[in-house]
Design a protein around this nucleic acid. Structure first.
Length: 267
DNA sequence: AACGTTGCCAACCGCAGCCTG
DNA sequence: CCAGGCTGCGGTTGGCAACGT
């Protein structure tokens, strides 16, 4: 026997909400709130709707301070950074963007942002480190800058080196993510392989020559790219950046967190 | 103008986890 | 401890609008 349905689907209205229904729900919510029970709410509010439908309508459209319309560059960056870290946990991502709903962000990611990043990664090649494009470092040199921790705080989103773990089932420790990302306030984990395949599907970017992830314990935080084992980076100001081995050699130092200026990626 | 395709987004569905009796 | 109910979440879908042929 399966789960009992939350409502009688045959006898409740479905599909788009009318202005009258919106007004009823809004008025009821403003006066009474959910009363802790979404299932009972439609009847009390005089709506012929499923409780889940009411909840969705309220959360995604009617509740106060919902922000609709274009996403800003900063919002783009935050979404990318968080998606990179925690994957498709839209509710967690939405919690970091006041006024945005998880549904909105999910739609935005699936229809626009993912495409935008893909285009940059594949056609522009601007999202991976390449010394020929100039310095990736904020001081304009070709080597990692030495930067005091207090200086690092001046950057709007810090870029830091965080180890990948090669196992798709494993997670990064929440403390690591929290300490690296000021926008992440709750415990989170991610699957690097999920992240990697979703953002940079190497079938669509064969020129990156990604061959897989190392299984060696010593190199468990690394990826095998172009036949070389190289470390992978999280970049909190844009996206995870798989870099070609030859590009990476000059910037890899396993003990130094690197700060990369956002503008470099936009060249 | 008609038709097909693509993009977008609101809404739905089913599952997992939490809560409560 | 367990079963059932409810909520929240993420994936998916349906329908409309815009665009292309």
């Amino acid at each position: 026997m399966g789960r009992a349905p939350c409502c009688d689907k045959a006898n409740v209205k479905r599909g788009p909400w009318s202005p009258e229904e919106d007004a009823k729900l809004k008025e009821y919510m403003e006066k009474h709130g959910t009363g802790g029970n979404w299932i009972a709410l439609p009847q009390k509010a005089g709506l012929n709707r499923c409780g889940k439908s009411c909840r969705l309508r309220w959360l995604n459209y009617l509740r106060p301070n919902i922000k609709h319309g274009e996403f800003s560059e900063l919002e783009d960056s935050i979404i990318c950074a968080l998606f990179t870290n925690i994957g498709s946990r839209w509710s967690v991502i939405a919690a970091q963007l006041p006024g945005r709903t998880d549904n909105d962000i999910k739609n935005y990611w699936n229809t626009k942002l993912k495409k935008k990043l893909m285009e940059k990664a594949i056609t522009g090649g601007n999202y991976y480190a390449n010394p020929n494009k100039g310095s990736p470092f904020i001081d304009g040199t070709s080597s990692p800058p030495s930067m005091a921790p207090e200086q690092q705080h001046n950057l709007w989103i810090p870029t830091q080196q965080v180890p990948f773990n090669s196992s798709s089932s494993s997670s990064l420790p929440a403390t690591t993510l929290q300490s690296c990302n000021p926008y992440l306030q709750e415990a989170a984990s991610c699957s690097p392989l999920d992240l990697y395949s979703s953002l940079f599907d190497h079938k669509q970017a064969p020129d990156r020559n990604l061959q897989g992830f190392s299984s060696s314990p010593y190199y468990e935080n690394d990826a095998i790219i172009g036949g070389n084992t190289v470390p992978l980076y999280y970049n909190y100001s844009t996206v995870a950046v798989p870099v070609a081995a030859e590009d990476l050699g000059f910037m890899y130092n396993p003990t130094t967190p690197y700060i990369i200026d956002q503008s470099w990626f936009d060249q």
